[in-house]
Design a protein around this nucleic acid. Structure first.
Lengths: 181, 181
DNA sequence: CTCTAAGCGGAGTAGCTACTCCGAATATAT
DNA sequence: ATATATTCGGAGTAGCTACTCCGCTTAGAG
């Protein structure tokens, strides 16, 4: 692969993340413009709009997966779990694509996105069970409902006009439900 | 207004609710087809697609507002509050437009939708404060964050493939956070 | 029953957007 | 420096969809 080609691929991916983060319905031409390349170049690298969206999704999921994986080594399991949770939600309020990414992580998507999503979910599951073992999270909370809460909080935070202090108070209520009585 | 015109208006509204509930990006022609009228008829009643969507939104919000208002007379304030909450979330998992309606209820929208949204929020606020007075919900939970939780849970439940039992366990965790310690 | 204003249907228009195609430009191996 | 395989750019194509226009139909008053 030629060096300029790889450069362009990276520029396109970055531009796509930015553009689709602001407006999921944005056109491919907007991406090309922001990336500073022609439309033809975008379509050579990502033959279909769906494939481009999928690539963006994969990047996001891999990023989340890596962060979760790092946190598995954090000594305080409770801090690791709640910290990751808050971070995901905070990011979702900025870049709205994240919450959709979390949803898509479970549903059918392309191969790369699916495997990145599975990795992220596995790492989050590990954070959860570690937090439960150290009694920071109640033991009867199973993964599916906790993950549903993560999705819900993220999508809720995406709603325009949710102020950060409100978001944090919302999370406090939520965390109180997750902690042991 | 002629009788057949009103009939058609109702048929179109019902069809639009159905169609947009399944796929928010559906075309106006799909609505016309399901309603059994011509496209021209749809556009005479709702001159713009946005206005049609807004009409659907208004109907939904009014329905929720009415339900909440009824429940204000329920003797058990806790049951009323949590029952309403669960009902909204359950409905959101079927008709995906509901969760978007809740989001839009706050943001700028057309006049009728905005006022229906305000009414619904007011009624929900009443349910909340009554539940707090009877000690079914912790007193330090303010309206904005509780409403954010309602939106979040609804949008989370909209995610494809969230099984009802998981949804209910998720709500149990959430309610535990809302109850007094 | 008659008349007419209100309403209907759907072919047509305008504009947008995903995707193609190919001549021009350029990286890199020799 | 030269050759050539690779990549680039962006005008052009096809198809979709919101919205218009107007001849035809029909409700319902008198």
């Amino acid at each position: 692969m030629r060096a300029d080609a790889r450069d362009n691929r990276d520029k396109i991916l970055a531009a796509a993340e930015e553009v689709f983060g602001r407006a999921p319905g944005a056109s491919t031409e907007d991406v090309a413009k922001l990336a500073g390349v022609g439309i033809g170049t975008v379509f050579r690298h990502f033959p279909t709009k769906v494939e481009l969206l999928e690539a963006v999704l994969t990047v996001r999921l891999e990023r989340l997966r890596d962060r979760a994986t790092e946190l598995v080594d954090e000594p305080d399991a409770g801090t690791a779990f709640f910290g990751f949770f808050s971070q995901v939600v905070a990011e979702a309020s900025t870049k709205l694509a994240i919450s959709e990414a979390l949803v898509a992580a479970g549903a059918a998507a392309g191969e790369s996105a699916r495997s990145a999503g599975a990795g992220m979910r596995a790492a989050f599951g590990k954070l959860l069970s570690r937090a439960q073992q150290s009694n920071a999270v109640r033991a009867d909370a199973d993964f599916p409902e906790v993950y549903a809460l993560l999705i819900g909080a993220s999508r809720g935070a995406t709603a325009a006009g949710l102020e950060p202090p409100v978001r944090d108070k919302m999370l406090d209520l939520l965390y109180d439900g997750l902690r042991p009585r």
